[in-house]
Simulated assay, not measured.
Amino acid sequence: MHKPSKAELAAAHGTVLDDLVAPELNVLFCGINPGLWSAATGFHFARPGNRFWPALHLSGFTPRLFDASEQKLLLGLGLGITNVVARATARADELTPTEFVEGGKRLVSVVLKYRPKFLAVVGVGAYRTAFAAPKAVVGPQEATIGETRVWVLPNPSGLNAHWQLPALAEEFGRLRAAASPSRPPRRS
Rank of each mutant, 00 (worst) to 15 (best):
E147K: 10
Q164W: 07
F131C: 00
H13I: 12
F52A: 11
N26I: 12
A68W: 07
L9D: 10
L73W: 01
T62C: 13
G123N: 08
R91N: 13
L175W: 05
L77V: 00
P63N: 14
A7N: 14
R91L: 12
S109A: 13
Y114G: 03
P134G: 10
C30G: 04
A130F: 00
P181A: 01
K105M: 00
A86R: 15
E170P: 06
K105I: 00
T41C: 13
F29S: 07
F66A: 04
A40E: 14
N83A: 07
P97W: 09
C30R: 05
E142G: 09
E99R: 01
E171F: 01
P4M: 13
I81D: 03
T15Y: 14
A120H: 04
T89C: 03
P166L: 09
E99P: 03
L77S: 08
R176S: 08
A90E: 14
H2T: 12
K105Q: 07
P48E: 08
G173E: 10
L75D: 00
T62P: 10
W163C: 03
Q164H: 13
V108I: 13
A179F: 06
L36Y: 11
V21Y: 11
R47K: 15
T148Y: 12
G80P: 07
Q164D: 11
Q141M: 01
W163G: 03
P97H: 08
R176D: 05
E147G: 04
G35W: 07
